[in-house]
Design a protein around this nucleic acid. Structure first.
Length: 270
DNA sequence: CGCGACTCCTGCCGGC
DNA sequence: TGCCGGCAGGAGTCGC
């Protein structure tokens, strides 16, 4: 579910409610997320004050005076701000209660998300080996080109590998390759330096446009403020199998790459 | 090491 | 209308 734009939209939605607040209590109704929620989460966070809410890849980092909560939304996670004590419905697994009387509530039906506590988030095992941020300075076409030399993996799963670059999920991988005119099945090592420049630009453009639109609305995503995003209507290929390519009119094709549905135009992407 | 398959889990949609 | 198979936005882990 949430890709980078959805996580960033959630971050922006919740930060005004969290920054400066003291955590009064962490209520965990279900510890069985992707990894069991450790006792340090509910032991260490109370009485600490939230200094900022950051994002690294698709992880939300709730920084406090005494450590960081590392939150991942997985495929089905979403966040909301509720009044403390609001009865929880099914799949609402965690509340981080605040001095303001409100609480940050995590809902995650599939429980592919996660919640960890770390004294130093950057050195946490989930984060320490991640590749560069696609919207940051360390990411460009030359970087992708260097990393891809000798690689036989298809370019689509290549750009979805978080050790290469973070935050490019299944929707935006298809969209970026369409924008760059690259066939998603092409071997990563057989894409030219020039075409990687186009691709890096396309990834940046697609992610920025989606963030500006508040993310993509598909099924159960809601932003931190409870409002849906509007990027879905701008998708060129994702979930548009057999519908006409908006550039050439040929029906959009689907292929499975790395166990993930991949959408592309056979005429516009070579 | 690189690559592809598998896995976790629930909800929902389309087809019969 | 109801049931069932298949698929879903992630990503770590395992086997070859």
């Amino acid at each position: 579910m949430p890709e980078l734009p959805e996580v960033e939209t959630s971050r922006r939605g919740i930060e005004p409610y969290l920054r400066g607040q003291t955590i009064t209590e962490v209520v965990i109704r279900e510890r069985r997320l992707r990894w069991p929620v450790g006792l340090d989460v509910d032991r260490r966070l109370p009485d600490e004050t939230i200094t900022s809410v950051d994002r690294r890849a698709k992880y939300l980092l709730i920084n406090t005076t005494g450590g960081t909560a590392i939150l991942h939304l997985g495929m089905s996670g979403s966040l909301s701000i509720v009044e403390r004590g609001t009865p929880a419905t099914v799949h609402e697994h965690v509340d981080i209660e605040l001095g303001s009387g409100k609480a940050l509530r995590l809902r995650d039906p599939r429980r592919f998300g996660s919640l960890h506590f770390a004294d130093d988030a950057a050195s946490h095992w989930l984060l320490k080996d991640l590749g560069p941020e696609p919207l940051g300075n360390r990411f460009d076409g030359d970087y992708l080109w260097r990393k891809s030399r000798g690689r036989r993996i298809a370019i689509k799963p290549f750009i979805m590998d978080a050790k290469i670059v973070v935050g490019v999920g299944n929707i935006y991988a298809s969209e970026s390759l369409y924008l760059a005119g690259i066939n998603p099945k092409r071997a990563a090592g057989r894409v030219s330096r020039e075409r990687y420049q186009w691709l890096a630009d396309a990834i940046r453009t697609v992610l920025e446009k989606s963030i500006a639109a508040g993310g993509t609305t598909l099924r159960d995503f809601l932003g931190g403020n409870g409002e849906a995003g509007y990027f879905a209507q701008e998708l060129e290929v994702y979930d548009r199998a057999d519908e006409p390519c908006r550039a050439c009119g040929r029906p959009i094709s689907v292929v499975v790459l790395g166990q993930r549905a991949t959408y592309y135009c056979k005429d516009c992407q070579k």
